[in-house]
Structure formats: C-alpha cells, structure tokens
C-alpha cells in the first residue's frame, strides 16, 4: 500500500462528454475518487481525442489529437492517464501504440510543436477509471466506505465495447491486476462491494450499444440499445450500470423509439456506476445528479427510500 501512495497520481483526461452531456458522470466520479482518497489531477487544456470518427476522415489528425493530450499529461510529470470514457480510452491507447514507432512519433511531434503543444515521447499508460479504482482501492477499500448499501437493488453491469478492446492497446489481461478481456468483472466487484445484487452472468455485458452510429444508423442503434435493455429485463435487473458516457446517452436517447417499437416494459433506469457508488457512500440522490439522466433513476431510488 505504501508503494502505491508514493507514486504520483495519474493525470485525468475528462474528455468532451464529461464536461458536456455526461456532467453527472464527472461530478459523481470526482465525488467517489475524493471519498476513496485517490483524487486525480485534470489535464487542463485538453482537447477532443477524436474518438472513432476522426480516423475515418484523416488517420494523421486522429493521431495528433490524442497525442496532444498525452503530451500534456507527460508535461505535468505523469506517466499514467486515467480516462472515464471508453471512446477516449480507445483513441488514446491506439495513439499510444502507434506512437511507439519512431517515424510516426517524429512526424506527429513535428505537428504538435507547430501547433504550440509539447512533444510526446511515447511513454504513458492509459487506463479506464473503473480499472483505476479497482486496482488502487480494491473491493475491500470500497466496502469500507459504504454507508448506505444498495441493499436489494438488482443491477446489470454494462461495460460496452471499447472498455478492454482491443487488448493489444488497452493492456487488458496483460497481468493479474488488469481486467479480463474475455469476461470483464471489475464493475461487478465494485457494485457488489456497494451492497447491490449484481447480475454477474449478464449476457449483454460487452455488446456494442450502437452509439458510434447513434444518429447515422437508427435501426442499429435503437436495435442494440433495445437488446441490452431486453437482456437486462430477462435477467431481472432493475437498474443498468454504465461506464461510458456514449453508451449511457445512446441508450437513454433511444427510449422513445424503444417504447414505440418494443414496448415500455423494456425501459429501466440507466446510471453511471459512479452515481451508484456515490449513493452507497451516503450521498443524496440530488448530489449524485441522478436527475440529470434522461431515464430518471432519481425517481427509482427515491421510491426505494434513498434521500
């Protein structure tokens, strides 16, 4: 434990969504990190990482965008970057991998310097906030902080596609303390530590939510969102926990269409896992910003007696 505390805290890359639509994730995430005693320092002048879209327009710009953020983190003296969004994780880890090549690195660095940003030497580790909490604090540490357990609430843990994939870049499964790329379980562990009944066999854990085409291909994005909710219903979940703002917003945004196409019995509240953890740590429904979510988990938790 002392070894862990001696290390510099990683830099935190929020990504556009957490300062925008996913504000509840940002606020509750900071709350949880604070409570657990592992706060992170934000990369101040960050920019969008390019997600999966920019690479289809320009492969080079899709490297410069994340590289600028990694370079800023290195300039802060940090060797680890923690992100909260699966899309950012993908993009930053992908760039990190590409920039291991010296020719690519010098090409990208030239552009970065032209644009007034520091160069990047290719040595940062990118990690998801879920993995960070699990490896730094662990189940025991989380359990010790729980004041109001999520007793009797059945949660479906939904990881989404790019949390561990591809393992080549994210490093999933590369050591025992990293996430298992074939059957992820860190979210299950943390929610269980919070006292919730977790559906460990939830079959749609890593199914794509269709969020990449949330606007451009409604047939697919509505279909996938509905199938995740349907699996949750079949398994008896009351709440779906997410770890990615794109997944969260995509599923919630399709509620009207899902209701029309498949019926209202599929719909259930969807919340960021940090919101659920904040609740378990004794924060109020209001403080965890559960009212921000379009699927209104605030109503559900109030009904269950959470203040």
């Amino acid at each position: 434990m002392t070894v862990v505390e001696l290390r510099e805290p990683p830099a935190y890359y929020p990504g556009c969504s957490l300062d925008g639509m996913g504000r509840a994730y940002e606020v509750s995430g900071q709350m949880v990190l604070e409570e657990l005693g592992v706060p992170l320092d934000r990369i101040v002048d960050y920019n969008c990482c390019g997600a999966t879209e920019v690479k289809n327009v320009s492969p080079d710009v899709a490297l410069v965008l994340p590289a600028r953020n990694l370079a800023l983190a290195r300039e802060m003296g940090r060797t680890e970057v923690v992100v909260a969004c699966n899309g950012c994780l993908y993009s930053l880890a992908r760039a990190n991998d590409a920039l291991a090549d010296t020719a690519v690195r010098s090409r990208v660095n030239e552009r970065l310097r032209e644009g007034g940003a520091p160069g990047y030497n290719g040595t940062a580790r990118v990690e998801h906030i879920l993995e960070y909490i699990h490896s730094r604090v662990g189940v025991v540490g989380v359990r010790a902080r729980v004041r109001r357990p999520l007793q009797g609430i059945t949660v479906a843990p939904y990881y989404g596609c790019l949390y561990t994939r591809p393992k080549l870049w994210t490093g999933a499964g590369s050591s025992p303390d990293r996430e298992n790329p074939h059957d992820p379980g860190f979210l299950d562990d943390l929610l269980e530590a919070c006292g919730a009944t977790v559906l460990r066999d939830f079959s749609a854990k890593t199914v794509c939510c269709g969020g990449g085409h949330a606007l451009s291909d409604l047939e697919v994005s509505v279909g996938f969102s509905a199938s995740i909710l349907n699996e949750a219903r079949r398994a008896g979940a009351e709440v779906v926990a997410t770890i990615c703002p794109l997944g969260q917003i995509n599923i919630e945004q399709q509620f009207d269409r899902i209701r029309q196409a498949y019926g209202a019995e599929l719909l259930r509240p969807v919340a960021y896992f940090t919101q659920l953890m904040a609740l378990a740590f004794g924060r109020s429904v209001r403080a965890a910003r559960l009212k921000d979510n379009f699927s209104r988990p605030d109503l559900f938790f109030r009904e269950r007696g959470f203040p």
Binding site: C161, T164, P166
Partner: peptide, 11 residues
C-alpha cells in the same frame, strides 16, 4: 459503412 468500430474483430 454500417460497421460500428466495436473492435471485437480486431481483438
């Protein structure tokens, strides 16, 4: 164009 880049194939 309908590929969602979910990266299961790459994995």
């Amino acid at each position: 164009w309908r590929c969602l880049s979910c990266n299961k194939c790459v994995e």
